[in-house]
Design a protein around this nucleic acid. Structure first.
Lengths: 156, 156
DNA sequence: TACAAATAAATTGTGTGCAATCTAATTTTT
DNA sequence: AAAAATTAGATTGCACACAATTTATTTGTA
């Protein structure tokens, strides 16, 4: 028997939440790469398009809040999507600080092709349907309740 | 009532596994940033160190397999860890293709300081203990069973 | 109404993440 | 054993991801 319980147990990869989460997310993104390439999107661009398809045109700010990305990431991604003609970017007349992201015809049509993308996971993840639902539910709950620590302090 | 069930339901962010997974992983990494900075590590470097602490010295190849990173990512990260004196990199005498990653004294000592890192999550994720365990279990199961599609074909 | 504070994007700098390619060492074949 | 195939890392190129800073616009206030 090994004496006292190991205080370092918490540092084992499998005992943490963060590592399986991080690794699992990367693996799934990897699986999506090929089917996404077929419709001309990167993973991040796909997330952006899904948000626009689901919620409609909105400002970069709103978009960033929905998909947890800041302007440092979003601005260049949106410029690429604009170059690919899937969206237009337009300063709002009422308040020129806002950039409205607007789906183009081409961007709307892409939705049809994108239907095949989520299917790429079929058979790749060996979880039962119930497990999948439970997993998704827990992730959403965790996400809704992430309480970014007291950096709020700095905001005065 | 809206007529037929919407075939685009699968493209909603919340109906997918990939988005909550991706977003959740990023949020947790964000929470870790501050405490990691205190001990002088980035998130990726932290994952590397945890693998070494748990499994001991090993080759870059083995390390990469454990933490799902390829040499394109690992090589520069390991060089930085070497510059920070947490690891040494040494070509194996038996087979010069392999680079052995070896914890230094400093790297071993860091383990003690790293104990505070996982604690940063306390109170940030509002899941019950049981939910946490379930979530981690499902993620590990998913990860173990990721079946990267038939690109194996290309390998002939 | 000027001017300070606030706000949305854009920019900059650093650090991944990964496919594709290259290089050097080793193993397998002929 | 020499050539071919394999293998571990290193390199390159592209795309995020995000903190920190800057810029342009709007809002709040004296």
């Amino acid at each position: 028997m090994s004496g006292q319980p190991d205080k370092f147990e918490v540092l084992k990869l499998g005992n943490q939440l963060c590592f399986p989460l991080y690794a699992c997310a990367k693996e799934i993104i990897r699986i999506y790469r090929k089917p996404l390439e077929k419709i001309g999107l990167t993973y991040t661009q796909y997330i952006v398009m899904m948000a626009l398809w689901e919620f409609g045109d909105m400002s970069e700010k709103e978009l960033g809040k929905k998909i947890y990305l800041d302007s440092g990431t979003l601005t260049p991604v949106l410029k690429k999507l604009e170059k690919a003609c899937f969206v237009k970017r337009q300063r709002a007349k009422e308040d020129e600080r806002f950039v409205k992201i607007i789906l183009t015809e081409s961007g709307i049509e892409l939705k049809e092709k994108a239907l095949q993308v989520p299917q790429a996971l079929d058979g790749c993840i060996r979880l039962t349907y119930d497990e999948m639902i439970t997993l998704r539910g827990l992730l959403k709950k965790a996400l809704e309740n992430v309480n970014y620590p007291e950096n709020a302090k700095e905001k005065k």
